[in-house]
Lab assay of single mutants.
Amino acid sequence: HRQALGERLYPRVQAMQPAFASKITGMLLELSPAQLLLLLASEDSLRARVDEAMELII
Rank of each mutant, 00 (worst) to 15 (best):
H1T: 15
R2N: 15
R2E: 14
R2T: 10
R2Q: 14
R2Y: 04
Q3D: 14
A4C: 08
A4I: 14
A4G: 09
A4W: 06
A4P: 08
A4R: 09
L5A: 05
L5E: 03
L5M: 11
L5C: 05
G6P: 05
G6K: 12
G6H: 14
E7A: 10
E7R: 08
R8Y: 13
R8G: 06
L9E: 01
L9Y: 01
Y10R: 06
P11E: 14
P11Q: 14
P11K: 13
P11G: 09
R12W: 08
R12Y: 12
V13G: 02
V13S: 01
Q14C: 08
Q14H: 12
Q14Y: 13
A15H: 09
A15E: 14
A15S: 08
M16R: 03
M16C: 04
Q17K: 08
Q17W: 11
P18E: 05
P18G: 05
F20T: 02
F20Y: 14
F20H: 12
A21G: 05
A21F: 01
A21Q: 01
A21R: 00
A21E: 00
S22R: 10
S22D: 11
K23F: 08
I24A: 00
I24V: 06
I24S: 00
T25S: 04
T25V: 15
T25W: 07
M27C: 05
M27V: 05
M27P: 00
L28C: 01
L28Q: 00
L28I: 06
L29N: 02
L29M: 12
E30K: 07
L31F: 08
L31W: 04
L31S: 05
L31T: 04
L31Q: 04
S32I: 05
S32N: 09
S32L: 07
S32F: 05
S32W: 06
P33K: 08
P33R: 09
P33T: 12
A34H: 11
A34S: 08
A34D: 15
A34F: 08
Q35V: 13
Q35S: 08
Q35D: 12
Q35K: 09
Q35C: 08
L36Y: 01
L36D: 01
L36K: 01
L36E: 01
L36M: 05
L37W: 08
L37I: 13
L37M: 10
L37S: 09
L37E: 15
L38Q: 15
L38W: 08
L38A: 13
L39E: 03
L39F: 04
L40V: 05
L40T: 03
A41H: 11
A41P: 01
A41L: 13
A41W: 09
S42L: 05
S42A: 07
S42I: 04
S42M: 05
E43C: 05
E43K: 07
E43Y: 07
E43D: 11
D44C: 06
S45C: 07
S45Y: 14
S45D: 14
S45R: 14
S45F: 14
S45Q: 14
L46T: 01
L46D: 00
L46F: 07
L46P: 00
L46V: 02
R47Y: 03
R47A: 07
R47W: 03
R47K: 10
A48D: 07
A48Q: 11
A48W: 05
A48K: 14
R49I: 10
R49A: 15
R49D: 02
R49T: 10
V50M: 02
V50Y: 00
V50A: 02
V50E: 02
V50G: 00
D51H: 09
E52H: 10
E52Y: 08
E52D: 08
E52I: 07
E52C: 08
E52R: 09
A53R: 03
A53M: 12
A53P: 01
A53F: 13
M54W: 06
M54K: 07
M54D: 00
M54S: 03
E55Y: 10
E55M: 12
E55V: 14
E55T: 12
E55Q: 15
E55N: 12
E55C: 07
L56K: 15
L56W: 09
I57W: 04
I57P: 01
I58M: 13
I58N: 14
I58Q: 12
